[in-house]
Design a protein around this nucleic acid. Sequence first.
DNA 1: CTTTCCAATGAATCGTATC
DNA 2: TGATACGATTCATTGGAAA
Lengths: 365, 365
Amino acid sequence: MTKRPENTSALPLDAILLGDCIAEMARLPNNSVDLVFADPPYNLQLNGELHRPDNSRVDGVDAEWDKLGDFEAHDRFTRAWLTEARRVLKDDGSIWVIGSYHNIFRLGAMLQDMGFWILNDVIWRKSNPMPNFRGRRFTNAHETLIWASKTPKSKYTFNYAALKMANDDLQMRSDWVLPLCTGRERLKVDGRKLHPTQKPESLLYRVLMASTKPGDVVLDPFFGTGTTGAVAKYLGRHFIGCERDPAYAEAAHARIDSVEPAPADAITATQSPREVPRIPFGNLVERGLIRPGELVFDVRRRYSARVRADGSLAADSARGSIHQVAAALQSVPSCNGWTFWHVERQGQSVPLDALRSTLREGQSA
Amino acid sequence: MTKRPENTSALPLDAILLGDCIAEMARLPNNSVDLVFADPPYNLQLNGELHRPDNSRVDGVDAEWDKLGDFEAHDRFTRAWLTEARRVLKDDGSIWVIGSYHNIFRLGAMLQDMGFWILNDVIWRKSNPMPNFRGRRFTNAHETLIWASKTPKSKYTFNYAALKMANDDLQMRSDWVLPLCTGRERLKVDGRKLHPTQKPESLLYRVLMASTKPGDVVLDPFFGTGTTGAVAKYLGRHFIGCERDPAYAEAAHARIDSVEPAPADAITATQSPREVPRIPFGNLVERGLIRPGELVFDVRRRYSARVRADGSLAADSARGSIHQVAAALQSVPSCNGWTFWHVERQGQSVPLDALRSTLREGQSA
DNA sequence: CTTTCCAATGAATCGTATC
DNA sequence: TGATACGATTCATTGGAAA
C-alpha cells in the first residue's frame, strides 16, 4: 500500500463541524486523524407504543435521524460515511463503532469488506438496562463495539499496560461492565433528556485510554451532545466532531467548555478472587469517583501519592498500582492499597475501599 | 406467505447424518424442525490442511492471500447452508447461530438479508477465557449468539417464566456468564481434546430451555461431538445432527448413548400464566364465588364497582368487563382487572385473581 | 438532618385468541 | 383478513417528597 502523506496542520482541531458528516468529512485531508469513534443511527424499527406494566409509556427513540429506511438504504449510508472515515484515518489509526443487533452485524461485515481489520469486538454490559416489559425476549442488556485497524498491517495504538493497570493488574477483557448515562451526567432540557442515546463518559474514557495517546486527534462523525469531545478534552486528546443538529451541537459546545482537563502529568499512560464482584481501582477513575491528579494519602497523612488516569499512583519515589506504591513507600513487601489510601470527601478522610463499595452496590458478578 | 405442509413423520429423529450438512439437510422435508442450532466453522485450518469454509483447497499459505475472495467463499457457503436450514425450519421456529468476530457479523447480516428476524443477540461471557498472550488486544472473553425467528411474524417459543425462575426470579439477560467446556465434560482421545471448539453443555441447556418445548425437534448442521444431541436427549427433545467427520460422529454417538434423560416431569417448563386455561370472570359469578351486586375495589380503595349477574361491572361512569371498567376509571389504555379488583373475604382484601386460581385448582384436581 | 417511600426512566425492532 | 377483547408484564438507579 502506498503511504499517504499526513496532513495534520489543516485540521480544525477541537471543533464541531455543523452539517452532514459525509460532507463535512469530505473537507478533511487524507490520512490525518488517529482515531475514529462512531455511534451511528441504529435504524431501530419500532412500530406501536410500548407500555410498562404500570401503564406508563416508554419514551422510545422516535427521532427522525434514526429512520434510515430498509437494509439497502442503511447499507448505502453506512458505506458512504465509512468511506470518508477511512480516507481521513491515518494508516496506523483505528476505528471504533458501536451498535446493537439492529445494525452492528451489517456494520461489522462492511468494515471487513472495506479492508478494515477487526481487532476485537467489545461488549458493553449494562449494569442497569431497561427490562423487557412484555416478557417476550431476553433483557437487551448490552451493546456491541467493534474495534478495527485500518489495515491488517497497521501499527495501531493499544495501551496494554495502562488498561491492565486500570484493571487491578489483570488483562482487560472484551466485556466491559458500565452503567447507563443517567443522573447528573445526562443532559436535560426542562427536565427531559436532550438526546435519546447519550453515551456514558466512562465508556469513552476506556476507549480513548485504550487506543489513543495524549495529543492524538479523535474524529466523531456522529457527535451528538459531545461525549467524545468532553472525554477527549478531559484526557488531553484533540477532537473533531460532526453534528447535523444545531441544538445538539450547541449543547455539546457548552458541555465541553465546562470540562476541566486532567493534569497533563497524570494522563500519560503507564509504560510498560472472589465472592463479591471485583472492582478494579481504574474503574473508580473512569467512573469519575476519583479524578486523575487527585491526591491520596494514608490515614495519618505520612505518605501521599497522585492518581493517574490509568488507575496507577505516582509518588516521589514510586509508581505503580495502589498496592505497589503503598508497599514501596513503607518499605514493606506488600500492602492493601484499598484500605491504606484515603481521599478527602466533604472534609473527611475516606478510604478507597469505601468508594469501591458504593460502586459494588447494585453491580452483580 | 403460503404455509408449507409440515411433515414430521419422515424425519430421522435422534439420528446423526454422516455427510456434508447442505446435502444432508436437502434430504429433509420442508417446514419440519422446531429449532436450528448452528456452530458453523470459520477457521481455515482443518485437519492440518488449509481449507476454505466451502472446503475448496487454498494454494498459497502466506498472509497475502486474497481476503476478499475468502470472505466471498465464506459467504457462499453460509448462504447455502442457511438456505437449507431455513427451508427445513417450521414457520414458527427459530434459529441460533454462534460465532466470534471473525464470522458473526457476516452471519448476522446474512440472516437479516434472508428474512430472518433477529430476536436477541446473546453474549456468552466466558468466566475462564484464554488470555491474550501478546498483549496487543483485549482478552477475547466472549462469543456471540444470534437468536432469530424465521419471519417477523413467527410465533416463536420463549419460555420466559422458566428462564426467570432459573435466574433467581429476575428476567434472564442477554449476557450469559458460563465457563468453557473443560474437565470431565471435555471429550479427549489420548489426553488430547477431540474437537477444537466443543461447546459447554450448560450453553446448550440454556438455549434449549429457552426456545424449545419437550418433544421438539432440534437440527444441528454442524454436530461435531454432539453437545446439542446430548443436551436435547437429556431435556426430552429430539435432535437431528449433520456431521461429515466420522470420528466426531462416532464420538457423538457414544456420548449420547450414555446420557440418562432427566425425569419427564422435571423437564416441563415452569408454566406461565399465558399457558393456563382461560377462565371468564362470569364463571366466578355463576359458580358462586362472587355474588351479583357485590362491591369490588382496587387495593387502595380509590375506585369501586358493582358486580352484575352477567359478569360485567358497573361503576358510576363506566360499564363493561372487569378490564374495561378498570381501564376507564383510571383513564389508561388497558388494565388487567384480575389483579386490579379486589373483594373482601374474612376481613381481607383478596384479588379476583386469587379467587380464579382456587377455581383452577379445583379443575385440575 | 436522617430515613423511608414513591415516582420516574433508560437505543425496545416487547401479543394473541376469537369472532 | 381485520377488528375486537382479553389480560400479561419490569430492573436498577436516581431524585424528590414525605415522615
